[in-house]
Amino acid sequence: MLRVGLTGGIGAGKSTVSKVLDELGAVIIDADQIAREVVAPGTAGLRRLVAAFGSEILLGDGSLNRPALAAKAFKDDESRLKLNSIVHPLVGRRTAELSESAPENAILVHDIPLLIENGIGPTCNLVMVVHAETEQRVQRLTRLRGMPEEDARARIAAQATDEERRLAADIWLDNTRSEQQLAAQVRDAWTSRLVPFEENVRMRRAATAQPELCSPDASWAAVGARLVKRLQFLAGGLAQRVEHIGSTAVPELPARDVIDLQVSVESTVAADEIAPLLEAGGFPRRTDITSDNPRAGSGPEGWEKRLHASADPGQPAHVHVRVTGSLGERYAIVFRDWLRSDAAARAEYAGIKQRAAVSPDYSDAKEQWFDAVYSRMMGN
């Protein structure tokens, strides 16, 4: 199934997005709703909170008095940790139960207000962020929820910044205009990205894309950083290192909009072990490619790899799984760093790419240049 993280600052319009996704057929797992459910009257969660913080946290009808709990639980770090040690495992177990009960072809949306603050984004296939300007959010909170303005601004200030959300967002939903326009954006993302992405993951199929050479894009660095974290989560302890490589990792260099990433592993055995983890996470393997082209002056040894490609139709990506210390692994890193540090080499390669872009095979057209610079670049 496809796992989508949905988040946004308080008052940004996340509930509207969640409602539209629910109408479209997504399975919604609401973190706030679960947090209320696990401490409802009669639950073990509420009994544990009373044991930890006293009966003063209850209302007359036996339900949780949230302001009273907050006054006790957030007075110091020890109390806050005590609260989290009770509630978080209960929320985690309930979330897992709901996830496991969802259909295999589900688009599972985790509605999590503090997804970015708690670093949960890498556990999702995609992160959707709904955005509204601060003053709009203040007006919504005061007018629609009756929240005092001072409290509204304090709540907003305590959450992630807009820049932090942009860096985490695979899909950015603009809610600075009407609710109808926001809903249209959600429906478009559902049709053009979420539905085909889920099908590709289920079928273990890479998204089809033939991107053209384009001008340098400052957003490539942020996309690369997101995918690095996602791959680190998927690979677990099998990955010794995950890096953004290739042309999109070099500022000021024209490139095709394909993010290249390298996962360094201990051995070819580990490369095979990591394959099903990457496939389940949305990066199916390209079994037709098992090695890089050996560079001039070297034999075939050390150029073996496993290639995976993203199933996400909205962002092409290639994942090169190579053994740490192999010629291919070293070459990918040195080539990137050489281009980053040498403006003349960067300009030379940009010219090669421009000429290759009009040839029948973009990659093959660059091979002679790669061979010509290999010894110079590797310091031989």
Rank of each mutant, 00 (worst) to 15 (best):
H88G: 09
V27Y: 05
Y349F: 14
G282N: 08
I352G: 08
Q136Y: 00
V138D: 06
I245F: 12
A344H: 06
E252D: 15
R36K: 14
C214K: 11
A152C: 03
P294D: 12
R94L: 15
L90R: 02
G236S: 11
A168Y: 06
H320E: 10
E100D: 15
G62F: 08
C214N: 04
A270G: 00
L141I: 03
H110Q: 10
R66P: 01
M1Y: 04
I289R: 13
E279M: 09
Q240D: 11
G62H: 08
T191D: 13
R322S: 07
Y362P: 02
A71F: 01
H320I: 07
R36E: 04
T134N: 07
L253Q: 07
S178C: 05
G314S: 10
Q180G: 09
L115M: 12
T268S: 12
V4G: 07
E329L: 02
I289N: 03
L90E: 06
L261Y: 02
Q181W: 02
L144F: 01
V242L: 12
P300G: 12
P300C: 10
D151G: 03
G351F: 10
N293V: 12
W338E: 10
I29R: 07
D260T: 05
V27R: 14
L227I: 03
L307V: 10
P276A: 14
